[in-house]
């Protein structure tokens, strides 16, 4: 016990005292610098001590890591360290809950060769409620409507807190490989898909070329 208190009084002087600067509080810098420190009790204690003495700075900054649940920090970190093939997800500089996502059209699908931009937002209740995801690039798909909304059960009633940003993006990639016109969101597209699949796939290819490929 005595030992414990010695360590405790020692800690604030052992861990680096941090000078607040703008760059530190960006999530990426946070991940790099603090993620390895903060999981330990002392690290966390020191971190919160520093954070408290600079509360005003934290409050000015929208993406202060102190406000960001650890789960989100870990997921962000892992997305960066072990990216999913064909998917890129990058947190916004000003808002660590907002991700700029790129999904490459899967091979052997009408979207092959396309680069699709999406946006993803983790609401306050995350992970108790699903992330919000939307296609920003136009896409001809029976389960994606003209506002870019995606009809995917895990984004709605099948959401579970065990799922992650990673799994959501993988499911979206899989949805591109396997359109499901029986559970449509874009009714006219689904109709086309059922009436004349060959034609619909051709239109999907055309849209991919038109909207999802670099025209340079």
């Amino acid at each position: 016990m005595a030992r414990f208190s010695i360590i405790l009084s020692f800690t604030p002087n052992r861990l680096p005292k941090l000078q607040i600067s703008e760059t530190i509080w960006k999530p990426e810098a946070y991940c790099g610098n603090f993620a390895s420190v903060s999981p330990s009790f002392f690290g966390f204690r020191c971190y919160s001590r520093i954070k408290r003495s600079h509360n005003s700075v934290f409050h000015q900054n929208m993406s202060a890591p102190g406000n960001l649940p650890r789960r989100i920090i870990k997921e962000t970190q892992r997305l960066k360290q072990e990216p999913v093939p064909g998917i890129e997800a990058c947190p916004d500089e000003a808002n660590a809950r907002y991700f700029h996502v790129i999904v490459m059209g899967p091979k052997d699908s009408p979207y092959e060769g396309g680069v699709f931009k999406l946006e993803l937002f983790l609401p306050e209740e995350y992970p108790m409620s699903a992330p919000k995801v939307r296609f920003m690039t136009r896409i001809y798909h029976p389960n994606i409507d003209k506002l870019g909304r995606i009809c995917l059960d895990i984004l709605k009633e099948k959401w579970s807190p065990a799922l992650q940003i990673r799994t959501v993006l993988l499911s979206i990639q899989a949805l591109l490989s396997a359109p499901n016109p029986e559970d449509p969101l874009a009714n006219d597209v689904a109709e086309q898909w059922k009436i004349n699949e060959v034609q619909a796939i051709e239109t999907a290819r055309k849209w991919t070329r038109q909207y999802a490929m670099d025209k340079k």
Partner: peptide, 30 residues
């Protein structure tokens, strides 16, 4: 990286540990 040593002078009380973080980080994109 902008990490540097800071003189130990502020000894903010432990009571602040319970201070709740305000959730002003939550800005829903347009």
């Amino acid at each position: 990286m902008a990490v540097c040593l800071l003189d130990e002078k502020s000894n903010v009380g432990e009571d602040l540990l319970n201070q709740q973080d305000c959730d002003n980080g939550l800005k829903i994109p347009r």
